[in-house]
Design a protein around this nucleic acid. Structure first.
Lengths: 116, 116
DNA sequence: AGAATAGTTAAGCGATTACTTGATAATCGC
DNA sequence: GCGATTATCAAGTAATCGCTTAACTATTCT
């Protein structure tokens, strides 16, 4: 599984924080599209959409290649999954901590120490 | 399962895009902490940490209560899981689309199962 | 009571964001 | 070749972000 560095996580979450960019990703999860395709439902100039796309591409949420005058854009699901996993670990840690607490309240000994 | 609105997703992803805020969440996934606890490993003033915490609290990634002069902070894992799920749907849609494409290239009719 | 600890609030500042307009290519259809 | 389509680049701008400092309000400790 792809592991994202801290700066990469900055960029991925930043990229995901914009609704137009999320709409572009959602569109791409349905299949490849040109920049104009991505722009069509969005209420902004093509130049703006291109800038949004570059943000997504710089952090590897998407990739693209240009043939003729058409740039074809695709989702890059590895990065999406790596991001999902980061959140998963956060929840897992939380649940592990709740388990330890529950065990403590039950009077059951915990063998996983390391409380701080 | 908690479902996040589009504006809520804006705020959650924005909140997650900062490394100090992610460090605070990671610390809280280990158990409750005061604001000063959260500030200790971070190279910034307590005022800055409090501002970061407010960002996390406004989008329900954490909650807190104050007793005496101590504000005790906790993770709110429902929102983390809802965010994780949004990413999960994105990947699922992408995989469904790959399945359709694969089936088309095989000349086989599309059905539900199968992975990539 | 006085001093230290913990948190809160407001103002300010430089950097970054999310656009826009306008100019410039490159390419396709006829 | 010409005009429409598709994309790219540069510069400008208003708003937001990530801090800081400074002043202030509890609360706890001795």
């Amino acid at each position: 599984m792809l592991e994202l560095s801290e700066p990469a996580l900055d960029d991925v979450f930043r990229a995901l924080s914009n609704p137009s960019r999320r709409a572009m990703l959602a569109r791409l999860s349905d299949g490849p599209a040109s920049l104009s395709d991505l722009a069509r439902p969005l209420d902004m100039t093509l130049a703006a959409v291109e800038q949004h796309f570059k943000v997504l591409e710089r952090c590897d949420l998407v990739r693209s290649n240009k043939v003729g005058r058409i740039r074809t854009c695709r989702l890059e699901p590895d990065t999406v999954r790596a991001t999902e996993q980061w959140l998963g670990v956060l929840c897992a840690d939380w649940e592990r901590q709740l388990d330890r607490l529950g065990a403590f309240l039950d009077g059951t000994p915990t063998d996983q120490d390391g409380n701080q």
